[in-house]
Design a protein around this nucleic acid. Structure first.
Length: 285
DNA sequence: TGCGTTGTTTCACC
DNA sequence: CGGTGAAACAACGC
């Protein structure tokens, strides 16, 4: 389930695979994935060259020459698979299709072929993702319209964000999921941030102490960095397969906490499945 | 088979 | 109008 680390991994793979390359063929098997696209057809990208591969929040930004840019959101279950001409595969995002299996898979909906031999497969078992093609000159306004907050990977303005936390009554988890507060966290990494911060996820944001607010904000870039370092969290059918004890709580209901061996619990916060350690994150407020 | 799944938007309401 | 919580939506696997 692609959050910022999975999308950033996809961005890096695409940059390595297709930057400077020219589109030689496009196969769109599920045209409806171009939802609300200003330009109606990906065919417009034929013979165009990739000039930049960017990302804002969880949105991939593929810039081509001659004023064309493709925005991609992987949503719940999107996957990007880059097949280099060497035969090496770079796969980011959802674990379906199996990275070492056959492509295109039945849930592979769009594929790009490049003159240099690289092939990119976009797959999405849930079909919730979207593609939007537009003039590059319109991208800035399109991204602004999302009203994303600061990138969770970067240096955060702790004073300003802490002040916002102190005024909100919603659960701290719900606030951290709000992309206009901080961009990039999703359900997995929010649970990890709160575990490292020793904070019960349903705690009202305004009930956090000064120290707790700083702790939470401090863990955001660190947790995202660990996700990126791993190329995304390994979670299959909602069961975590931790690497270096990460993720520590998300997808580990019924399993022992890596720190204290207390059984990890699952609750619902803001109608989202939420994992926490009842000993490390007691509901003290 | 109806429920769970997530990121995001929409809606009713205060 | 803004904050809030819940519902809606996309579609499918189990």
């Amino acid at each position: 389930m692609p959050e910022l680390p999975e999308v950033e991994t996809a961005r890096r793979y695409l940059e390595r695979g297709i930057l400077g390359q020219s589109v030689s063929a496009i196969d769109v098997r599920l045209p409806k994935l171009l939802r609300d696209s200003p330009l109606p057809s990906l065919e417009l990208l034929l013979n165009h060259t990739v000039v930049a591969v960017g990302r804002r929040a969880k949105v991939l930004i593929l810039a081509f020459d001659h004023d064309l840019t493709l925005l991609v959101h992987l949503k719940l279950a999107g996957q990007v698979a880059v097949f280099l001409s060497s035969g090496e595969r770079l796969v980011a995002g959802h674990p379906v299709p199996a990275p070492f299996g056959e492509y295109p898979h039945k849930v592979t909906h769009i594929e790009f072929h490049f003159a240099e031999g690289t092939v990119v497969y976009f797959s999405d078992v849930r079909q919730f993702g979207w593609f939007r093609l537009m003039p590059t000159s319109d991208v800035e306004a399109a991204i602004d319209a999302f009203a994303f907050g600061p990138e969770g990977t970067g240096a955060l303005d702790v004073d300003a964000l802490s002040a916002i936390i102190s005024r909100r009554s919603i659960p701290i988890k719900t606030l951290l999921l709000d992309q206009s507060f901080i961009a990039g966290l999703g359900n997995i990494y929010v649970d990890e941030v709160l575990f490292r911060s020793h904070i019960y996820p349903a705690t009202a944001a305004r009930d956090l102490s000064d120290a707790e607010r700083n702790t939470v904000l401090g863990h955001v870039p660190a947790v995202l960095a660990e996700g990126i370092r791993q190329g995304g969290a390994k979670i299959i059918h909602n069961i975590a397969h931790p690497v270096d004890q990460f993720p520590a709580v998300h997808g580990r209901g019924g399993e022992p906490c890596f720190v204290c061996e207390t059984t990890i619990e699952k609750i619902r916060v803001g109608s989202r499945g939420t994992y926490f350690c009842p000993n490390c994150q007691p509901p003290t407020h």
